[in-house]
């Protein structure tokens, strides 16, 4: 009797889970298995795939200069973007943590870029601001600073103007920081105040250590996101100039859909999965050194 009840409950549970499960299996699991298989084939999407073993991987690491270029660009982007975005998100979260009128409105405003800037429209606006003959160039011209080349047109700066666009998408990290800041017990700050601690040292001695679990969480999330960046380079620069903004995923997309090289592209996708997994693993390993959990035994900060 008990057993069948449990069976019934499990069944009900799975039934409730079914929509998500179906989505997961159809949209993630099966395509992933397919792509793993395809990564060992020569597949142009129009004809049946031909099994070629590790040739795609060998070509990628051995011969493909664009692959290494794309990898380099993506690492530059990740390292430029993630720390800056997190710092900015934290700074804004601190500002928004005060008690002022209309704070909810500010929060909404500051979250907006996150919704907008993944979009095509904002990417095009970016092009108009930082591109040749764009707003920035015109403004600098008026100030007497004459540039021959725009920020987006200069191979040395283009990737950073894209990072700037990325930093602007700080909203989700900011909200997570904000809620974490609110959970820091006020008593800590109060007793520190009584002991004569200034705002600066309270931030570095109390707020920041208490936030490390949140920083840890945001860091992982943002690194994963940054590695997968696509729209920015696809729309704003199309990977140019001189491949200086050739993001990994853009190159992967080109190989698949422009060059009819789906097998190779699948192999690239798996290499990216491994890179992201390695990164995440390393950060997890280091967390004992810098992440402070107030109550040991809890898994994370969110409860």
């Amino acid at each position: 009797m008990k057993k069948s009840l449990r069976g019934y409950r499990n069944g009900l549970g799975y039934l409730m889970l079914a929509p998500w499960l179906a989505g997961f299996v159809l949209m993630y699991l099966l395509p992933m298995i397919a792509s793993l298989f395809l990564s060992f084939t020569n597949f142009n999407m129009l004809s049946a795939p031909k099994f070629i073993g590790f040739d795609n991987y060998a070509r990628m690491f051995g011969q493909d200069k664009s692959f290494w270029k794309a990898l380099g660009v993506t690492f530059t982007y990740v390292f430029a973007l993630v720390p800056a975005r997190l710092a900015f998100a934290l700074a804004v979260a601190m500002l928004l943590n005060s008690k002022r009128k209309g704070l909810a409105l500010y929060r909404t405003f500051y979250y907006m870029p996150s919704i907008l800037s993944g979009s095509i429209a904002v990417s095009i606006v970016w092009k108009q601001i930082f591109g040749s003959g764009g707003v920035l160039m015109t403004l600098l011209n008026q100030l007497g600073i004459h540039q021959k080349i725009s920020m987006l047109g200069n191979p040395d700066t283009a990737v950073y103007s894209l990072a700037l666009l990325g930093i602007w998408q700080f909203g989700s990290s900011m909200l997570i920081f904000l809620s974490a800041i609110k959970q820091i017990p006020a008593s800590l700050h109060e007793s520190a105040k009584i002991d004569g601690a200034r705002a600066g040292s309270r931030f570095f001695k109390i707020t920041l250590p208490m936030l490390t679990p949140t920083i840890f969480f945001n860091l992982i999330l943002q690194i994963i996101n940054a590695f997968r960046a696509f729209t920015e380079s696809y729309v704003v620069t199309d990977g140019g100039p001189l491949d200086s903004t050739l993001f990994y995923v853009l190159y992967l997309y080109r190989r698949a859909f422009n060059y009819f090289d789906m097998g190779y592209s699948s192999a690239m996708a798996w290499v990216l999965v491994i890179i992201i997994a390695l990164f995440t693993a390393v950060i997890f390993k280091t967390q004992n050194n810098w992440v402070y959990y107030e109550s040991k035994g809890g898994i994370g900060h969110d409860s």
């Binding site: 092009k127 591109g131 040749s132 003959g133 764009g134 080349i149 725009s150 987006l152 047109g153 200069n154 620069t237 199309d238 140019g240 100039p241």
Partner: peptide, 10 residues
């Protein structure tokens, strides 16, 4: 220049 051409081409 290629920089200017990107804008023109669009």
């Amino acid at each position: 220049t290629p920089d200017e051409w990107t804008q023109i081409n669009a």
